[in-house]
Amino acid sequence: MRSGLLSPGLLRDVAFAIAALALLLVLPMAFPAPALRDFLIYFFAYGLLAMSLNLLVGLTGLVSFGHAAYFATGAYAFGLLMQTGRVSIPLAMLAAVGGTALVALVIGAICVRLKEIYFSFITLAFQMFIHSVIVTWVSLTGGDQGLRGGIPRPPILGLDLNDARVLYGACAAVFVLCILAMRQVSQSPFGYTLRMIRDNPARANFLGVDVTAMKLGIFVFAAAMASVGGLILALFVSGAYPEFAFWTTSGEAIFMIMLGGTTIFLGPLVGTLLLQTLNHFVTIYTEHHGLVLGTVILVIVLGLRRGLADVVYDWLQGRRTTRPNTPAGPTPEGAEPAPLPDGALKSRIV
């Protein structure tokens, strides 16, 4: 049944991706304020971080507290390679993603053996370790002052990335490509195996699935995708900073996916958009953004008790099936709502 769906699914995804990219490219032309482009580039970077984290949290049930470590390794590896002045941007990107995948392979091999909360703790420990390496290894990374001196942007294929509009276009294309890749992974047989591991690891094991290898696979892939987010940010701010690897960055990614919701594929992007927008405007109007942001989060969590995209999705589902819907019941749900592979498409926002 699945293989039958896969091909039209892919076509639909590609069509959707092309439409999304076109929209992203047209948007700044319709509203040519530089601030909109800036905002969207940050959205791409953190969106990739949140989306890739959700491959672990939502898809596989691995709650990582240390995902930003790979966001940072991507940024630093890319920045350092570009600063040598001998590498082209695409090559540096590939090397940074590959290097991060390698780091994730080593760390992941240790981490994925641990269960539940202990997995969370050890990912956090490794993240703090990577952060302290960045801060301590001053001769390479510049320590707490970050990678200084700017990251050069030599032209690729005649495209001058120093032009803010071209830079934006390139980031948008990379972003959409990565989202498409993540979509394919989550819809592949591998992706369904991961869902099975999340819902019932014992059964998966019984069916002969190598649970550890599968988890490691998605851990490495998610890390690679996070590193793309990191290098987009590094390219844009023309530097890399140890704060990228601090636990607060991982924390923020978690809040993005929780705000958006973990069950719908693009939910984390909704959360990213929400948090970025909130942060943007609250920072402008008040210095007490902690108070405002904290209150908003509390209201959403206590009021809706779930991610925004999940709520909207349930509401749509409820209307569609016209059954008396029971969203956010008071009973704590041990088992998550069943994964909704194709239905999820209908409620894609963004």
């Binding site: 304020a33 530089p34 601030a35 800036d38 940050y42 970050g146 940010l233 844009f236 701010v237 530097g239 900073y241 704060e243 990228f244 943007h280 920072t283 402008i284 210095e287 953004h289």
Partner: peptide, 22 residues
């Protein structure tokens, strides 16, 4: 016009760009 970067360099870059551009 002052703006809080919360001690994060990428945020500092962002608010600086916003201050100038916007």
């Amino acid at each position: 016009i002052d703006r809080d970067s919360k001690g994060r360099p990428d945020e500092a870059a962002k608010v600086t760009r916003d201050l100038i551009n916007n």
